[in-house]
Amino acid sequence: MKQFRKLVTPYCLWLFLLTVVPMLLIVFYAFTEKGTAITTFSFTLENFTKFLDPIFVSVLFRSLKLGLLTTGVCFLVGYPIAYMIAKCKDTTQTILILLITIPTWINLLMRTYSWISILSNNGLLNKLFEAIGMNSVNMLYTDFAVIIGMVYNFLPFMILPIHASLTNMDKSLLEASQDLGASPIQTFFKITFRLSLSGVLTGITLVFLPSISAFVIPKMLGGGQYSLIGNFIEQQFITIGNWHFGSAVSLILAVFVIGLMALIFMAEKRTNNSVEEEEGGWLSNAKRKKVR
């Protein structure tokens, strides 16, 4: 085995070049401003103080709002779906889970374009409305379209971990609960939901974090007026060309995300602690499932 160890070196090198160096560059850009010559940079905090402008802050909050809304809708739609799938026969479950996973293999742009053709003024939905004698509704480039696109895109990441935690649950606990006099509804809230919380938290993490910084979907379905933190960063880098300010905003967002992740991690640890050591969150559950 030992002679293979050297083979790891190029991998580490690439890892360093492709992930660590860009990160360091972002930190570097964020704390500097351009000097007169190309090679002279000077240290500054101005990029951060500039962001405190209410206009920019409101962009951040709008992003958080969209993230929360997306996560909320994903949960409300995803939990019942995951629950119903978990109730099916094993073979049916495999098929349904596959059906939910397949769209994520298709390019994000293509998926979002198809929503444009569904929601646009002479799109599929409006054609349908006309056919049944209703007025056409302006849906594209509204909040509604953005939410639809976001939820459609992130829903699988809510369903899969919840489904995993539901199928890993010991079914005899549900029987025990009913045996002790709890109706099916009481059993759901006191046992099923409580024990699927770790899956729910994983789902929230997987949906909320990327949806704060999403910018492709809001841009395509929400139109140009829809300025979010993701769009904002993209603009700074590509349209305006202010890499320093762009990097600073990226860093602020990253710190925000890390903070939120820490919160969720702590919450998950608390539920897991009280749900016995053996239930180690979604990842270890999924692993255990594979082994079986």
């Binding site: 606990l173 025990a176 046992i191 016995e276």
Partner: peptide, 8 residues
């Protein structure tokens, strides 16, 4: 048979 105690 396997107790089915509520782990939480």
């Amino acid at each position: 048979q396997k107790y089915a105690l509520f782990p939480h």
